[in-house]
Every structure is written in structure tokens, then in C-alpha cells.
Amino acid sequence: MSASLTALARRRLARDRGAVAALVALVATALACLIGPFLTGHAPERIYPDFVRTTPSLSAHPTPDEIRPALDRLAQRMRVTLEDVRREGGQVRLTLNAQKPIDPRNLVLLPRSDLFGPATVIERSPDGRRLVVEAPLRRLHFLLGTDMLGRDLLTRCLVAGRVSLLIGLVATLVALSLGVTYGAVSGLVGGGLDALMMRVVDILYALPFVFFVIVLLVFFRAGLWLVLVAVAAVEWLDMARIVRTQTMSLKSRDFFRAAYALGSDTGAVLVRHAVPNTLGPIIAAATLLVPRVILLESFLSFLGLGVQEPATSWGVLIAEGARALEAAPWMLAAPAGFLVVTLMALNRLGDGLSDALDPRL
């Protein structure tokens, strides 16, 4: 496309407020997935045993109701009796008793927990069987709650978004490269070559996708790259058919005949006329292909053929949330919310780009 047509398409897109809002939402989601995990204060693999299946909240943890049960568990591990607990601002003061002298080294269990910092002995009885200890309270926030293991769900959703968006974008780019080239050549050349190329597409359509993935597992380990190869290897077929159909409909147009009459070869017509005039359907199909790839990755991960732990994706999190729907519905709502927003933004942006890049307008 010439610079003037590109600028015109950009102005058309800018006037479409819905498409601009969708683009902003996609950029914000991508930036959140890239930068957000460094700002949440939680490592994605960090397990908080004291906060398993914690509900979403804006309040800091531990709450007053969570302090005493956690201290009772720690006292049992230290083999002492928790006589008194007092909370003073950001500190907690404990009075510990035992039948034998208490070893101060056991107090390292406090900072090893999720709730308390390093402990300081304030008072000690002469026989060592009674200690008064003071420890700072940690302030933890779980805006979207935690999962079945006690991992922060917001951090995991953001990290999972990196994998899902990477799979969607890379597989879509590969599918576009193969599908557009293959379909445009097939539709423009026509004849016996077109029939042969379409029969190859039909044969590939007939191959069961799961069987194809299982064959790949014979040669490669299950993981992210296997998903990329498997999805990119089959998702270009629809794109090839779409571009072929559009190209064949354009061959009878006057500007195609004029290009050949002016001495343009097949390659020049393909690059300057065929592909630019099919950009509208291509962009629309591509924006629908990204969410389909993400959902396909979810299916593979659900079967254990896709992304493997400790890595995760929105599909993996949705599968985990579906299994824990009754006990922890937020585990499904959080990743599903990210996925739904992304899919809606992609669809709306695709509509805007399709209109902006339509050369007939």
C-alpha cells in the first residue's frame, strides 16, 4: 500500500472510537502482563500455606482472625504453649510457655511463615520456660485471591497472559505468512496448480489434530514450543482458503487486467494488487485467529499436551478454576476475565481494521 493509503487507513481507524478503545485495552493488557508481575509483590511460584484459597479482597493480610490460628500452628511446631497474644499496631507480642526451657532458635519459624517477620525476645524467665516475644506483621495483598496451593492469582494471571499472548501472536503470524502466500499464489495462478494445492490443503484438513500433536510428542517434549509448532502447522489452512477465494474474485476485476496489460508479472500483481486488496478479510480473520489459538492451547494444556508446570497460561488457569468452581469460583473468574476482555478487544479491533483497510472505501 502507498503511504497515502496507509495514512488514510490510519485516520479511518482513529475515527472509530470503539476500535481505538479496543486497541488501548489490548495495549494495557499486554503491558500489565509484561510489567505487572514485578509490581504485585509476589513471585508466581511462591506458595503461601497460610493463605490457601483466600478470597479476593482489597484488605491486607493477615486479618485479626487469621493471626491466632497461624500462631497456634507455629506454637505446636515449636512445642510450646501460646499463653497470650497482643497486637500493637504493626507488631504482635506473644507470651510462650513450655515444660522445658525454650530454645530461642525455634523462633526462626516465625519469619519462615507468611505472616510474621524476625522475632525479638523481649522478656525471658530465669528458668527459660517462659518467653515474651515481639515480631512484626507482614502486609500481604491478594487482590484476586489465591489458588488451591496458596499462590497469588493476580500474579499468575499476568504471567499466564505472557504465554497465552505469545502463543496467539506467534502462531497467528506464522499462519498469516503461510496462509496468505499459499492462498494468494493458488488463487492467482489457477488451473491445475490451484487444484493440486487445494488437494494438499484438503489432505491436511483430514488429519486429526490431536493425533498430529501425539506424533509430535514422539520427537519433542510437551511444552510451549510444541504448542507453537502444532498450532501454526494447522491454523494456516483456513487463512489459505480465505485468501484464495478473495484472490479468485479479484482476478476478473479491471485493475487486474490493466496491471497485466501494462506488463506486470505475476509476482508484482501478487504483491501490489492481490494481497493489499484482501487485507480487510485477512485482518478480520487474523483477529479471530488469535483467540482461537489461545483456546486451542487451553485444550492442549487441559489434556496435558501443552504448557507444563511451572509455566502456566490462561487456558491452564481456567482448567484449574473449572475443577475448583464450587470451592473457589474466583479461580475461574479471574483468568476468564482476562481472556474475555482480550477476545472482545481483538474482535472489536478486527472490525475496525477491516473497515479501515478496505480499499473499496
Rank of each mutant, 00 (worst) to 15 (best):
M1N: 08
A3S: 09
A3Y: 11
A3P: 00
S4H: 13
R12Q: 08
V20H: 05
A21N: 06
V24P: 04
A28K: 04
A28D: 02
A32P: 09
L39A: 06
T40I: 01
T40H: 01
H42M: 04
P44R: 00
P49N: 08
F51Y: 15
V52Y: 08
L58N: 11
S59H: 15
S59R: 15
A60C: 04
E66P: 09
A70Q: 07
R79M: 07
V80T: 04
V80D: 04
E83F: 08
E83R: 14
D84A: 14
V85Q: 01
V85R: 03
R87P: 00
E88L: 13
V92I: 10
R93N: 02
T95F: 10
L96F: 03
N97T: 13
N97C: 03
Q99L: 11
Q99D: 15
K100M: 07
K100D: 12
P101R: 09
P101V: 10
P104R: 12
L109G: 03
P111S: 05
P111Y: 00
R112D: 13
S113I: 02
F116E: 02
P118F: 00
V121R: 10
R124Q: 14
P126L: 02
R130S: 14
V133C: 01
R138A: 02
R139Y: 10
R139I: 09
H141N: 14
L143R: 12
T146Y: 05
L149V: 05
L154N: 01
A160L: 08
L165A: 08
L165R: 07
L166V: 05
G168Q: 03
S177V: 13
S177E: 03
L178W: 01
G179I: 00
T181D: 01
L188Q: 15
G191A: 09
G191C: 05
G191E: 06
G191W: 09
G191Q: 08
A195H: 13
L196N: 08
R199F: 08
V200Q: 14
D202M: 07
I203Y: 10
I203F: 14
I203L: 14
L204S: 06
L204C: 10
L204F: 15
L207F: 15
F212R: 05
V215W: 13
F219Q: 06
R221P: 07
L224M: 10
L224W: 07
W225D: 11
A233G: 12
D238W: 08
R244L: 07
T247W: 11
K251F: 03
R253K: 15
D254H: 04
F256I: 15
A258N: 11
A259C: 03
G263T: 12
S264H: 11
S264W: 07
D265G: 15
D265V: 00
D265E: 14
V269Y: 11
V271A: 13
H273L: 11
A274L: 10
V275D: 02
N277T: 07
L279W: 02
A285R: 04
A286Y: 10
T287M: 15
L288N: 10
R292E: 09
L296I: 13
S298I: 00
G306Q: 08
V307L: 01
P310D: 07
W314M: 11
G315T: 04
V316Y: 03
I318D: 03
A319G: 09
E320H: 13
L325S: 05
A327K: 06
M331D: 01
A334T: 04
P335Y: 02
P335T: 00
A336V: 01
A336P: 06
A336M: 13
T342S: 14
L343R: 09
D355I: 07
D358R: 04
R360Y: 02
